[in-house]
């Protein structure tokens, strides 16, 4: 049996949202919440790649599909909370903002950051998904059978 209550589920969810946010969005939402907390780098923002894998036949043995660009960083707030970011693309400022949010989510500011940043990102992401899905749905074929012959 798999443990269904993943203790890291919350953090996975917010890191995923932060990684997929459009360029500059996390920083803008963070800015709106007031001055940034002081922090020191554990790993300054760095651009690299991740090898993306697929599976033969969708379900079989893995193979290397190609790389994607990724930016990562790690920082520590004055209070000691450590924030990490691994985000798609070459976006050092976005990685810093994402790591700050990750760190703040482990502090007393969590509720405020959840409402001011993560909930907004989630709403925007689901609106984008819904718009695309609705356009796809409009191109779904509705087959109907023609009645042919006389009897």
């Amino acid at each position: 049996m798999k443990d269904t209550a993943d203790p890291n589920a919350g953090r996975k969810a917010w890191m995923s949202l932060l990684a997929k946010a459009p360029e500059g969005r996390v920083a803008a939402l963070l800015e709106a919440m007031g001055p940034r907390p002081a922090h020191g780098w554990l790993r300054a923002p760095e651009i690299g790649s991740t090898m993306v894998r697929g599976r033969a036949g969708g379900t079989g043995a893995p193979f290397n599909l190609g790389e994607m660009t990724v930016t990562r960083c790690a920082l520590r707030l004055e209070g000691g909370a450590v924030g990490h970011a691994y985000i798609q693309g070459r976006r050092k400022a976005d990685a810093e903002a994402a790591a700050l949010v990750d760190a703040l989510m482990q502090t007393d500011a969590a509720a405020e950051v959840q409402a001011g940043v993560l909930d907004v990102l989630e709403a925007e992401a689901s609106a984008r998904r819904a718009t695309r899905a609705a356009k796809a749905a409009a191109t779904k074929v509705d087959f109907f059978t023609m009645v042919r012959g006389d009897d």
Partner: peptide, 11 residues
């Protein structure tokens, strides 16, 4: 020129 951070889980 890019350092490789790792490999993804299969998509």
């Amino acid at each position: 020129t890019l350092p490789r951070f790792g490999a993804s889980n299969p998509v």
